[in-house]
């Protein structure tokens, strides 16, 4: 870990100003991913701005009947919130499927969105990785790829986004509220928040340098049956091979987003009209154009079957 200076910010504006002022500065909140990566020198901030004091830890109703979740709301608190459990159960379920109790107690809403990939080659600094070191190449292509992306990948990167929460946020049409270093606030639809790797896999989100997430908003509840199915090799404390966040209405219509398959939560709204026709009908469209490796082609079958299980649960 490289040496860094440290300061505590008290307001979002102060934090934004601090990051603009200091080259190589980064925000730190829960720290559960950032410190992990700093220990390996995958992240090497020269200055850390501790945003834990920003009082962005409230969950409140929005005027349009939705929910505004402060950026610093811990995963545990978000999952346990009665409004989330009642109206956005898919989000509770996704959060509870992720990490461990200890990590959820620390990890924040914003930090969860900003998690970086768990691709083993990204984590091994001796190996070329375009995401870690642009232009160095992708070791995962032709390498060990069982965990990695089957769709939306590029010749530069086949990493996946590891978050469970983000998959639920995607199916809920969340919006990410931010404040930029210049003080400008904006709202980014979750669909536009995470990027595909393309030729620039090191650029993972729509955030500008120094832009701070202040909240995530959820539109008013859509009802329906909510489920989050996470499939992994061990029963807990592991990243998804495949996950499905689904909201199914009584008439069989609904929405579904998939985790563990792409560089961002994977949802194809246009395909959702096929949901009443069953998992295969939907999955065929969602995964049209998939380019799995020989090691992870099973994820396509698994995604469809996981969705089938979710739909069966919804019908039951």
């Amino acid at each position: 870990m490289k040496a860094f200076t440290y300061e505590r910010a008290r307001t979002p504006a102060e934090a934004a100003a601090a990051v603009a002022r200091t080259p190589g500065a980064k925000f730190i909140a829960g720290g559960t991913n950032l410190l992990d990566l700093m220990k390996l020198q995958i992240e090497t901030p020269r200055h850390l701005i501790d945003v834990n004091g920003l009082k962005l830890d409230e969950i409140e109703k929005t005027p349009d009947g939705g929910l505004r979740i402060g950026a610093l709301v811990r995963n545990t608190d978000l999952a346990a919130d009665a409004r989330v459990r009642n109206d956005y159960a898919v989000l509770s379920r996704a959060l509870l499927a992720g990490a461990s109790g200890q990590l959820r107690n620390k990890a924040t809403t914003a930090g969860n969105l900003l998690q970086r990939t768990r691709c083993p080659y990204f984590y091994d600094t001796a190996q070329p990785c375009n995401k870690r070191q642009p232009g160095s190449g992708c070791s995962a292509i032709g390498g060990v790829s069982r965990q990695l992306a089957v769709i939306g990948s590029s010749d530069a990167c086949i990493a996946t986004h590891p978050s469970d929460m983000a998959v639920a946020m995607r199916v809920l049409d969340a919006k990410v509220e931010t404040v930029r270093a210049d003080g400008q606030a904006r709202r980014i639809p979750i669909a536009d928040f995470h990027r595909l790797p393309g030729t620039t896999p090191h650029i993972e989100t729509a955030l500008m340098p120094g832009e701070l997430i202040t909240a995530v908003t959820l539109p008013k509840p859509v009802g329906g049956f909510h489920t989050y199915r996470k499939v992994r090799d061990r029963a807990s404390y592991a990243f998804a091979l495949v996950s499905v966040a689904a909201i199914v209405q009584r008439d069989g219509r609904g929405r579904a987003a998939f985790g563990g398959v792409a560089h961002r939560p994977w949802r194809v709204e246009a395909a959702e009209a096929a949901m009443p026709g069953g998992a295969k009908a939907l999955a065929d469209q969602v995964f049209a154009g998939a380019k799995p490796t020989h090691e992870n082609a099973f994820k396509l079958t698994l995604a469809e079957r996981t969705l089938a299980g979710a739909l069966a649960e919804a019908r039951a």
């Binding site: 440290y6 505590r8 720290g31 834990n52 200890q102 107690n105 620390k106």
Partner: peptide, 15 residues
């Protein structure tokens, strides 16, 4: 009052 992984947090963050 909450359990955490003490390895993934900086001491200076616990004023």
């Amino acid at each position: 009052g909450r359990r955490i992984n003490s390895c993934l947090t900086l001491a200076v963050m616990h004023e």
